[in-house]
Nucleic acid binder design. Sequence first.
RNA 1: UGGGGCGUCGCCAAGUGGUAAGGCAUCGGCUUUUGGUGCCGACAUUCGUUGGUUCGAAUCCAGCCGCCCCAG
Length: 363
Amino acid sequence: MKILVGLSGGVDSSVALCILKEEGHEVIGATMSIWDKAKHLNITAQKDACFSPHEEEDIKAARALCEKLDVPYHVIDCTKEYQRLVLDNFKSEYLAGRTPNPCVICNATIKFEALPRSAKAQGIAFDKFATGHYARLSYNENLQRYQLRCAADEKKDQSYFLYRLQQEQLSRIHLPLGEYTKEQVRDIARKYNLPVSEKPDSQDFYTGDINDILQTEPKPGNFVDKKGKVLGTHQGIWNFTIGQRRGLGISADRPLYVIGLDKDKNEVMLGYAEDGMKASLSAKDITWLSVPPFTEEKEIFVKLRSSQKPVPAVCVPNGNETATIRFFEKQKAVAAGQSVVFYDENGFVLGGGFIKSAHNAAD
RNA sequence: UGGGGCGUCGCCAAGUGGUAAGGCAUCGGCUUUUGGUGCCGACAUUCGUUGGUUCGAAUCCAGCCGCCCCAG
């Protein structure tokens, strides 16, 4: 099979390429370019990140890998799409008092969409598109659906970031690392003597100040407690997210967390940990993945953030791609704009949506 | 300028003669392909100030400075 492999310059995608080549596939390397040099001249983010001015170093690493393995390599320019679909959304969400998750959007619209599409348009032929994501993809004959499941390595599972992929996209995708553990992947990297074999894991979206991306003027407003008492001033609600503790600069007898963002009043509401616990949430723009859309309420497991162990909840579909999710136990830091991803007891990704609002009561 | 009270890290606050708790904030690290959370570590040679008593004071005494309250 001819497989286009999305390379980030890191360990995982490099090993994915090696594995597929070893399996006898005809592989092609490709890296998406998302940093628009012309637009972001004055931004300086120091450390490595997904969206970073040091993108060229990653491209250099990916290119070197392909040369070493004698594999064709291409850089696919996705800067326009990335600006329009990821960065513009990132900005409007933050300014609206919500907390976006750029990775979720990027995967569904850029990495697994614009990248392979542009590659094809450039005349690069391939049957499947592969990445180094930790998640398992399979096809269920009975349901006639592609199904996404959490990775074998629970610690590295990235299925949360992939829940918005559609059946048509999944049909063209291959995820070779789903059954591997991170340690195994590193071992393979060492076996192939890859220069990235010891490269650190984590990758932030952006390591600089997000105001670099938002490019907006400070808008001072008040920190208030839940009774409305003014506790201090902030420089813009987009600098905060529900559940945030650090960087508030306000002392109290116990730690304070952001428990609310009011765009109209331009206020950031603070409270104790227990004040931020939520019993339910409303989700919108729900997409379904491993199963057809729910028509009645069901018990499921949900993740409110990637690194969370799925927690039991009830999903009540409300039609029109919305649903109410009721937790069995109250959850912290339920932030509008973030995603709620549905799982079953076996770790299959059922679907998910964007958190529209969180509620203290169970409805 | 009569009476009373108070002044310990950026904030709150223990400590009332034996050589400065704790919480919050802040900073650093770890964790993490969003935001964030969590965890670990750092953080007052000094107790408004000047003198005195004492082997020894943030703790006792006196003056001064500052703040608060009640009377006026």
